[in-house]
Amino acid sequence: MTHWKSLFNYDYLGVQCLPEGKDIVLTIKKTDRKEVPNSSGKKEECTILYFEENVKPLVLNKTNCKTMEKLFKTPLIEQWYGGRIQIGSARVNAFGEMVDALRIRPFIPKEKELIPVETNSTVWKDIIDALKSGYKLSTVQGKYRFTKDQIKELINYEIA
């Protein structure tokens, strides 16, 4: 299903960016200060949160900052770098109406266990076929655990 906001080109992460409305887990890369237009078009200085993953940055609000301070047990934003957060949608009262807003969940996301792959297995052959047909190595690395030698071999298939 298509969220109506996805029809417009927004520069920052919003609820329309959540795949099928599901939470996403991201790794904090850095923060920056930028002028961002607010809902009335007036520019205001905002803190922007960037991620290691290939997603749009997030405009940080006080609610999400307070959540991260509790998660990482520090108010110092530089100490949040490298931390993992889970972001989802929540209905909130803003500007006199109920709207969908991004909220950082109040817990550290669990790390997904990766499945080890034997080089001579059927799964290994399926992965190679997938890479040859256009899948990206980063996609399969999200599910499987590879040795350094396996990754070197798989890179050749991704490029081919």
Rank of each mutant, 00 (worst) to 15 (best):
T2I: 14
K66Y: 00
K110H: 10
L114S: 12
L49D: 00
S39Y: 14
H3K: 11
K56H: 05
E52G: 01
D149P: 00
Q16G: 11
I155D: 00
K5G: 11
K66I: 00
T47W: 04
E158P: 07
L137K: 12
C17L: 01
K143F: 15
L131P: 05
S39K: 11
V140Y: 07
E113I: 14
N61I: 13
A160Y: 09
I159F: 07
N61Y: 04
K70M: 05
W124T: 02
A160M: 13
K22S: 14
W4F: 13
F51N: 02
V59M: 08
K136P: 03
V36L: 11
P37G: 04
I87K: 02
R84F: 00
T119N: 11
L18V: 02
S6W: 06
L13Q: 02
Q79I: 00
N38P: 06
S39C: 04
I159R: 07
E35R: 01
H3D: 13
V15F: 12
I115E: 15
Y157P: 13
L154T: 13
L26A: 05
P106H: 08
K125R: 15
V15K: 02
A94W: 12
I127A: 04
M68L: 06
L58Q: 02
I85Y: 01
C17A: 08
R33D: 12
I28R: 04
T139N: 10
Y144T: 14
I108Y: 05
Q79L: 10
V15T: 14
V15Y: 12
Y10A: 01
R84Q: 09
L71F: 00
N120D: 06
